[in-house]
């Protein structure tokens, strides 16, 4: 699959809530080649580093624009949040292996923890009108992301918050387990797609195995090159180390183990 090195123009860089921002970029080739679950490597330029690019999963593509939903968590994203419309960024992508769409006999069950919604909105758009269910976990109600976007694709949405301010009181994986435990039909027909912090993914893998539900997860990790050259971003799978940037970031749950996701 062809990959591009492009200079993208910032169309919009919007603060959503808390540490979350949305970046809308104008690109040329990259957008229509991208599929859900793939990512881009973005170079944030400044005099004081950072040196390497940073990976961001593709949130949405519309025509010749790409949207990235990001969380400010370090130097690169702090600089990124200060950038304005009209400025330019170097972009590498689309990279990696994305989601594969589940068979029509399945009900897509999306599980997102925090910023983990980012690639799942793109996926939900590919699974439009499949009567899927999206479970979104956030720390508190203000930080629930993309509820509207999921609903717009015909997904039902369930919410969990760690502080109980909205929806289920607890972790998103606890809500997932509750739903699976009581809904036999969902248990039989579900195909899981999950993205979020490692502990959440470990729990999702555990539940997937416990209830024998197939699925895929998208992993996040530090990367140096993003194109499979350095072998720096590997994850332990049942068949040895795999590069998150090349064989991933999306992996079949059956390939992964809970121990392999330890960081």
């Amino acid at each position: 699959m062809k990959q591009y090195l492009e200079i993208a123009k910032i169309l919009k860089n919007t603060h959503i809530v808390g540490p979350y921002w949305k970046l809308k970029l104008s690109v040329s080739e990259l957008a229509h080649r991208a599929s859900s679950g793939q990512f881009v490597m973005l170079k944030v330029d400044s005099d004081q580093g950072p040196l390497l690019r940073r990976p961001f999963s593709i949130h949405q593509v519309k025509g010749k624009t790409v949207e990235l939903l990001y969380e400010v968590r370090g130097k690169a994203t702090e600089i990124l949040a200060k950038m304005k419309a009209g400025q330019r960024l170097s972009l590498l992508g689309p990279l990696g292996t994305g989601f594969s769409l589940c068979d029509l006999s399945y009900v897509p069950l999306l599980v997102a923890g925090g910023i983990g919604v980012a690639p799942l909105v793109f996926l939900a758009q590919n699974l439009r009108n499949r009567k899927g269910l999206a479970i979104l976990g956030a720390q508190k109600k203000e930080r629930i992301l993309c509820e509207k976007e999921f609903k717009a694709t015909g997904f039902r949405v369930k919410i969990s918050t760690n502080d109980g301010s909205r929806g289920f009181y607890g972790r998103v994986t606890e809500l997932l387990e509750e739903l699976l435990a009581k809904d036999t039909l969902l248990r039989k027909k579900a195909f899981l797609y999950a993205c979020g912090p490692r502990p959440m993914l470990k729990q999702t893998i555990m539940l997937s195995k416990k209830y024998n539900i197939p699925g895929q997860v998208s992993l996040e990790t530090h990367m140096a090159c993003g194109i499979g050259a350095c072998c720096g971003c590997v994850v332990q799978t049942l068949t040895g180390y795999k590069r998150v940037c090349k064989e991933g970031p999306v992996f079949a749950i059956k390939e992964l183990t809970e121990e392999g996701l330890a960081e």
């Binding site: 040196l51 390497l52 990790t221 530090h222 140096a224 350095c230 072998c231 590997v234 960081e263």
Partner: peptide, 18 residues
């Protein structure tokens, strides 16, 4: 190769143990 994490960025540098 070695156990991950295998890389990290340092000031103007890249530290690796692939």
């Amino acid at each position: 190769g070695n156990r991950p994490p295998r890389t990290c960025e340092t000031p103007a540098g890249l530290l690796n143990s692939i």
